[in-house]
Amino acid sequence: MKTLYRCLAVGVVALGGLTAVGAAPVPAATGAGAPSADDTPPPAVEDFTYPQADRIFQERGIRLKSGDGRILLVTCDSRPGLLEVNARGMTATDPVGRGRFCFQVSGSTGRLSLELPSVYAAKGNDYAVRLDMRTGTEAKSFDVEKNKWTQVGETADPQERVFTLLEITATA
Protein backbone atom coordinates (compact mmCIF):
# COMPACT_ATOMS: atom_id res chain seq x y z
CA MET A 1 0.00 0.00 0.00
CA LYS A 2 2.87 2.34 0.83
CA THR A 3 4.31 1.75 -2.66
CA LEU A 4 0.97 2.66 -4.25
CA TYR A 5 0.87 6.00 -2.38
CA ARG A 6 4.46 6.70 -3.37
CA CYS A 7 3.60 6.03 -7.08
CA LEU A 8 0.56 8.29 -6.87
CA ALA A 9 2.60 11.08 -5.29
CA VAL A 10 5.26 10.82 -8.00
CA GLY A 11 2.55 10.86 -10.68
CA VAL A 12 1.00 14.01 -9.22
CA VAL A 13 4.35 15.79 -9.26
CA ALA A 14 4.99 14.62 -12.84
CA LEU A 15 1.63 16.01 -13.94
CA GLY A 16 2.52 19.45 -12.69
CA GLY A 17 0.64 19.69 -9.44
CA LEU A 18 -2.68 17.98 -10.11
CA THR A 19 -4.05 16.67 -6.85
CA ALA A 20 -6.90 14.59 -5.58
CA VAL A 21 -9.94 16.27 -4.06
CA GLY A 22 -9.16 17.58 -0.59
CA ALA A 23 -5.38 17.23 -0.92
CA ALA A 24 -2.99 20.14 -0.78
CA PRO A 25 -1.69 21.31 -4.16
CA VAL A 26 1.69 20.04 -5.20
CA PRO A 27 3.96 22.69 -6.73
CA ALA A 28 4.86 22.27 -10.40
CA ALA A 29 8.35 21.15 -11.29
CA THR A 30 10.93 23.89 -11.74
CA GLY A 31 14.54 23.97 -12.76
CA ALA A 32 16.47 22.41 -15.62
CA GLY A 33 13.99 19.58 -16.29
CA ALA A 34 10.86 21.73 -16.19
CA PRO A 35 9.06 22.49 -19.47
CA SER A 36 9.33 26.11 -20.63
CA ALA A 37 7.37 28.24 -23.08
CA ASP A 38 10.02 27.43 -25.72
CA ASP A 39 9.18 23.72 -25.41
CA THR A 40 5.54 24.11 -26.37
CA PRO A 41 4.66 23.82 -30.05
CA PRO A 42 3.15 26.86 -31.78
CA PRO A 43 -0.62 26.86 -32.10
CA ALA A 44 -2.02 25.37 -35.29
CA VAL A 45 -3.13 28.36 -37.35
CA GLU A 46 -4.30 28.03 -40.95
CA ASP A 47 -2.78 30.74 -43.16
CA PHE A 48 -4.70 29.64 -46.29
CA THR A 49 -1.53 29.64 -48.42
CA TYR A 50 -2.01 27.66 -51.64
CA PRO A 51 -0.16 24.30 -51.34
CA GLN A 52 2.96 23.93 -53.51
CA ALA A 53 2.48 27.42 -54.96
CA ASP A 54 6.21 27.92 -55.63
CA ARG A 55 6.45 24.68 -57.61
CA ILE A 56 3.33 25.53 -59.64
CA PHE A 57 4.72 28.98 -60.41
CA GLN A 58 7.99 27.46 -61.66
CA GLU A 59 6.14 24.90 -63.82
CA ARG A 60 3.24 27.01 -65.15
CA GLY A 61 3.92 30.72 -64.55
CA ILE A 62 0.77 31.26 -62.47
CA ARG A 63 1.23 32.59 -58.94
CA LEU A 64 -1.37 31.02 -56.63
CA LYS A 65 -1.40 32.90 -53.34
CA SER A 66 -4.21 31.92 -50.98
CA GLY A 67 -7.82 30.88 -50.79
CA ASP A 68 -10.41 28.91 -48.94
CA GLY A 69 -9.55 25.59 -50.62
CA ARG A 70 -12.73 25.46 -52.71
CA ILE A 71 -11.18 26.71 -55.97
CA LEU A 72 -8.30 24.53 -57.12
CA LEU A 73 -6.09 24.61 -60.20
CA VAL A 74 -6.60 21.35 -62.13
CA THR A 75 -5.59 19.90 -65.47
CA CYS A 76 -7.83 21.05 -68.31
CA ASP A 77 -9.56 17.94 -69.56
CA SER A 78 -13.02 16.89 -70.67
CA ARG A 79 -14.49 17.03 -67.15
CA PRO A 80 -17.65 19.11 -67.12
CA GLY A 81 -18.02 22.01 -64.73
CA LEU A 82 -14.50 23.46 -64.89
CA LEU A 83 -13.88 27.21 -64.88
CA GLU A 84 -11.39 28.09 -67.63
CA VAL A 85 -9.21 31.21 -67.86
CA ASN A 86 -7.00 32.09 -70.83
CA ALA A 87 -3.89 34.29 -70.74
CA ARG A 88 -1.72 35.57 -73.61
CA GLY A 89 2.02 35.08 -73.94
CA MET A 90 2.24 31.95 -71.77
CA THR A 91 3.63 29.50 -74.35
CA ALA A 92 7.13 29.49 -72.86
CA THR A 93 6.19 29.85 -69.19
CA ASP A 94 3.30 27.36 -69.29
CA PRO A 95 4.28 24.33 -71.39
CA VAL A 96 1.43 22.33 -69.78
CA GLY A 97 -1.54 24.46 -70.85
CA ARG A 98 0.08 27.21 -72.96
CA GLY A 99 -1.92 29.86 -71.12
CA ARG A 100 -5.06 27.79 -70.60
CA PHE A 101 -5.81 27.37 -66.88
CA CYS A 102 -8.71 25.36 -65.44
CA PHE A 103 -10.15 25.50 -61.95
CA GLN A 104 -12.47 23.13 -60.12
CA VAL A 105 -14.92 24.80 -57.76
CA SER A 106 -16.57 22.92 -54.89
CA GLY A 107 -18.93 23.90 -52.09
CA SER A 108 -21.39 26.76 -52.07
CA THR A 109 -18.74 29.51 -52.31
CA GLY A 110 -15.07 29.74 -53.17
CA ARG A 111 -12.25 32.28 -53.25
CA LEU A 112 -8.77 32.15 -54.72
CA SER A 113 -6.18 34.93 -54.65
CA LEU A 114 -3.65 34.65 -57.47
CA GLU A 115 -1.59 36.58 -59.98
CA LEU A 116 -1.97 35.76 -63.67
CA PRO A 117 -0.96 38.40 -66.24
CA SER A 118 -2.56 39.05 -69.64
CA VAL A 119 -5.92 37.36 -69.01
CA TYR A 120 -8.32 37.98 -71.89
CA ALA A 121 -11.12 35.38 -71.71
CA ALA A 122 -12.89 33.09 -69.25
CA LYS A 123 -15.40 30.27 -69.65
CA GLY A 124 -17.81 29.99 -66.75
CA ASN A 125 -19.22 26.93 -65.07
CA ASP A 126 -22.43 26.46 -63.04
CA TYR A 127 -21.29 29.05 -60.47
CA ALA A 128 -21.70 32.82 -60.48
CA VAL A 129 -18.05 33.80 -60.98
CA ARG A 130 -16.41 37.19 -60.57
CA LEU A 131 -12.85 37.94 -61.68
CA ASP A 132 -11.11 40.85 -59.96
CA MET A 133 -8.39 42.27 -62.20
CA ARG A 134 -5.96 45.17 -62.37
CA THR A 135 -4.31 47.22 -65.09
CA GLY A 136 -1.79 49.75 -63.84
CA THR A 137 -3.46 51.32 -60.81
CA GLU A 138 -7.04 50.68 -62.00
CA ALA A 139 -8.98 47.76 -60.53
CA LYS A 140 -11.92 46.25 -62.40
CA SER A 141 -14.25 43.29 -61.83
CA PHE A 142 -15.76 41.10 -64.52
CA ASP A 143 -18.76 38.79 -64.10
CA VAL A 144 -18.30 35.55 -66.06
CA GLU A 145 -21.39 34.15 -67.76
CA LYS A 146 -22.42 30.69 -66.57
CA ASN A 147 -21.20 27.95 -68.95
CA LYS A 148 -20.24 30.49 -71.64
CA TRP A 149 -17.17 32.35 -72.79
CA THR A 150 -16.86 35.91 -71.51
CA GLN A 151 -14.47 38.58 -72.71
CA VAL A 152 -12.46 39.97 -69.80
CA GLY A 153 -9.35 42.10 -69.45
CA GLU A 154 -7.96 43.53 -72.68
CA THR A 155 -10.75 42.07 -74.87
CA ALA A 156 -13.40 43.85 -72.77
CA ASP A 157 -11.41 47.08 -72.43
CA PRO A 158 -11.97 49.82 -75.06
CA GLN A 159 -8.27 50.76 -74.79
CA GLU A 160 -7.18 47.07 -74.98
CA ARG A 161 -4.97 47.43 -71.92
CA VAL A 162 -3.33 44.33 -70.39
CA PHE A 163 -5.00 43.12 -67.17
CA THR A 164 -3.68 40.85 -64.41
CA LEU A 165 -6.13 38.47 -62.73
CA LEU A 166 -5.91 38.90 -58.94
CA GLU A 167 -8.89 37.03 -57.48
CA ILE A 168 -11.56 34.51 -58.44
CA THR A 169 -14.78 34.43 -56.44
CA ALA A 170 -17.49 31.81 -57.04
CA THR A 171 -20.97 31.45 -55.57
CA ALA A 172 -23.41 28.60 -56.22
Rank of each mutant, 00 (worst) to 15 (best):
4 L>Y: 06
16 G>E: 11
19 T>V: 15
21 V>N: 09
28 A>V: 14
28 A>D: 08
40 T>Q: 11
44 A>F: 05
45 V>E: 09
58 Q>G: 12
62 I>M: 11
64 L>P: 06
74 V>S: 06
81 G>Q: 07
83 L>H: 13
83 L>M: 12
85 V>A: 10
87 A>F: 12
91 T>W: 11
91 T>S: 14
93 T>A: 05
94 D>I: 00
94 D>K: 03
96 V>W: 06
97 G>Y: 04
97 G>F: 03
99 G>M: 01
100 R>C: 01
102 C>G: 03
103 F>H: 02
104 Q>G: 01
107 G>E: 00
111 R>T: 13
115 E>K: 06
115 E>P: 07
122 A>P: 04
123 K>A: 10
127 Y>G: 04
130 R>I: 04
134 R>G: 01
135 T>E: 05
138 E>G: 04
139 A>Y: 14
139 A>H: 12
141 S>E: 13
141 S>T: 15
142 F>V: 07
142 F>H: 13
143 D>K: 14
145 E>S: 13
148 K>M: 08
148 K>S: 09
149 W>P: 02
150 T>H: 03
150 T>Y: 02
152 V>G: 10
155 T>R: 09
155 T>N: 06
159 Q>D: 06
160 E>V: 07
161 R>I: 09
162 V>N: 13
170 A>R: 14
172 A>R: 15
